[in-house]
Structures are given as structure tokens and as C-alpha cells.
Design a protein around this nucleic acid. Structure first.
Lengths: 204, 204
DNA sequence: ATATTAGTAGATCGATCTATCAAGAGCCGA
DNA sequence: TCGGCTCTTGATAGATCGATCTACTAATAT
């Protein structure tokens, strides 16, 4: 049996991600995690807020590793982005449109009501953006544009998750993925686009 | 004094949009709306669910009118999309990052927990997508691509709202807006890209 | 063997939640 | 003036919330 604390965190990640912060109760978490209510306050003496913050940061770390793995395993950054959207669509379908972004629901909910949790979500988004930016820069894109492309790509992904879960289809993820991939490929220095093309230097 | 029912709906739209469904209580709504608790059940005998569904559909209608107005008042569809993102950024700043999309928070929260409300959010998104698609088609884009472009643009907008509220800046909206606008301009028939060019008739 | 700590367990607290209810206010036509 | 209707009001029910508490078990250290 997995350690109680880890079991609680896994369950809270699932439930907070699906139903949000206010929509998920402590009793619901311990019931699904097959733990005692007392255990949750033993491991997270700060109560629901602490549990949620640790959930946000833990889910964020896991998703960061996924982002890095998918981008790094692809042949190039354009393909990596394409793969990520495809994988996201598959995951959403596999969970019957329940699990998409692990922190988006919380992020919207707490943005104006809980500064500590808001900051936690912002930190996680920032870590994802940095991972993407770094890889875009490695592909020859200038830092400022890399940052803006990352913001754009993550925005499209997050919004596509919203639409997909509401509509119960992955049309939005498919559409967003193909356009985002095209934009990123377009932004790459010509010499790195798909295959090598001779005699082309990046603008700067 | 505005009628009680309208006052309740205005307040519920604000609170549900900012804090989500579970995070907003009936007492909170009537307190802010300066109404009696009983009044809410007089006008919405179906309780919180009915109030939320009507809130979703009412907010959706208002936002639809905003979308249509901004797109129709612009000189061309590319400019209209650009204007919409700019206006969205201004609105988010003006409300101190509280009000962005009126239904996104609810949509994520109820997608897996309340089928009636999920469908309401899906209907609203669909109405926005149709409005956008229709105008893209009028600008000479084929129906299928118009649909995909609308999905892409709305995804980018919704996701940018998530990031902007979490990060408390409008970088994501700015970035998303400029890339989406560029993609849409790129998709327009050459004769319609910038200003009118002579000798081009719409396809139908 | 004993002391200490880590973790489990669930009864229970006060607060808050949604929802109901009976009573009354205000208005309008007869 | 009266009856009938819409709407308002807030007390209250009953459930559930997060959180606390004591008591207990298991494991480890001394």
C-alpha cells in the first residue's frame, strides 16, 4: 500500500483538478483515498489550504516533467508541441473528459479569493512557461519571442481544455494544436524548420 | 431600483464568474444583491442549479452580443479579433483581474459533476463559436476552416484568461491576441487581407 | 521493558450551506 | 373595502462543511 500521505495527495490532485477547490470536501478526499480524516490534518496541519497548495505544486511538478519529456523526446520543437497537444487530447478522452489541466480549475477559482493559492498556480504556470521558452530558445528563437510563443501556446492549450471538457469532444484541442504548431514552425529559423534548407540565416 | 430578479442575476453572474459555482453561496448572493433569501427561491424555484443555469445563459447572451458588436464594428475581421483581445485585456485590468470570461470557471467546475450545467456552458460556447465562424465565412474563409479557426481563437482567449488571472498581468492576452490575429489574417483570401482590393467578389 | 513518536480512527464542534416556510407588504381590479 | 395576486422577509430546518479533539495502535528508540 502506498504511503498514506502520498495516497491523500494523489486523490486530492484528482478531485481538486476535476471539481475545484470549493467543490471538493475533506471528507470526500479521505473517503476516496481510504484514509482517516485525522490523517489529513496530521500530514497537512495547515488544513485544506495547505493540502491544496501542496497539491497544486506537486501536480505542477509532475506536469512539468511531462512537458519536458514530450518536448525533449520529439525530433524537433514543432513536432514536440504537436505531440503534446495530441497526447493531451488522448488523455482527455481516456478520462472521459475529466482530467485535463490539473490546476486550471483551481486557478480560476482562487485567482480572486485566495492569494496564497493564486500565487501557487502562478508559480506552476511560470515553471511550465520557462520550460517551453527554454526549448524554443534552444531551437533558435529569440528570448522575447520565445516567451511570447510560450504564453500563446499554453493559453491555447488551457483554453482548449476548457472547451473540450465543456463540449465533450476534442475538436478544440485538435484545432488549437494544429494552429499553434504551425505558428511555432513558422517562427523557427528557416534552417531549422522541418528539414534543413540551405542558405538561410535566422533574422537575428 | 432595478427589479429584484435582475439584481440577483447580475450579482450571481459576477460571483459565479469570479468564484465558481461551489465557491459562491446563496447567502452571499442575496447579501450582495440586497435581496432576501426567500426571493431567490421565489424567482428560481429550482434552487441554486436553476439560478446558475440561467446565469450561464444570460451571461452567455450578453457576451455574445459583445463579440458580435466588436467584430461587426471593426473595419475587417482581423482587426475585429485584435480589438476583442485588446478590449478583453483592458477589462481584465479594469476589474483587477477578477472578471474575464463569465462562464469559464463554472465550466471547468461542473464539466464532470453536473450534466445540466455542463450542457449550458457548452451551449454558450457554441453560440460564440457560431458567431465567430459566421463572420469568418463572410470574410471568405471556408466553413470548415472557419470553424477550426473559431475554436482556436476562443481557446487562446479562454486560456489567456486563465493565465492572466493567475499571473495578474495581461501578457498572455497580449501574446495570444497578436498570434491569433496573425493566423486569422493569414487565413483570409489575399484580396481581403488588409483593405478592400478591387475585382474580388465573395464566393457566395 | 519502557518511553517516545508516528499515524489511525471517528465522535464531535461550531459554522455555513441549501432550501423551506409562514407571515406580511404592496398593488390592482371589482 | 375587499379578495386575490405578486413579491418580500427572515427565521429556521436539516445537511454538510472544515476543523479539533481524545483515544488508540504500531513502530521505533533507549
Amino acid at each position: 500500500m502506498v504511503a498514506t500521505r502520498a495516497r491523500i495527495l494523489n486523490t486530492s490532485s484528482e478531485l481538486f483538478g476535476r471539481q475545484g477547490y470549493a467543490g471538493t470536501g475533506m471528507n470526500e478526499i479521505v473517503a476516496k483515498a481510504e484514509a482517516a480524516l485525522g490523517s489529513i490534518y496530521h500530514f497537512f496541519p495547515g488544513g485544506k489550504d495547505q493540502l491544496c497548495e501542496e497539491t497544486i505544486r506537486a501536480s505542477g511538478r509532475i506536469y512539468l516533467e511531462l512537458i519536458e519529456a514530450v518536448l525533449d523526446e520529439a525530433s524537433d520543437i514543432g513536432q514536440g508541441v504537436d505531440d503534446f497537444f495530441s497526447g493531451a487530447a488522448a488523455q482527455v478522452v481516456a478520462t472521459d473528459f475529466a482530467d485535463a489541466c490539473p490546476i486550471a480549475t483551481i486557478a480560476l477559482e482562487v485567482a480572486s479569493t485566495n492569494e496564497d493559492l493564486r500565487r501557487a498556480t502562478a508559480d506552476v504556470f511560470e515553471s511550465w512557461l520557462n520550460a517551453a521558452s527554454q526549448r524554443l530558445e534552444q531551437a533558435g528563437i529569440a528570448p522575447l519571442q520565445a516567451r511570447r510563443l510560450s504564453l500563446f501556446a499554453l493559453s491555447a492549450l488551457e483554453g482548449a481544455f476548457v472547451l473540450s471538457r465543456a463540449q465533450r469532444n476534442v475538436d478544440a484541442i485538435d484545432a488549437a494544436g494544429s494552429y499553434v504548431t504551425a505558428v511555432i514552425r513558422e517562427a523557427l529559423p528557416r534552417s531549422r524548420r522541418q528539414r534543413r534548407e540551405p542558405g538561410d540565416e535566422p533574422r537575428n
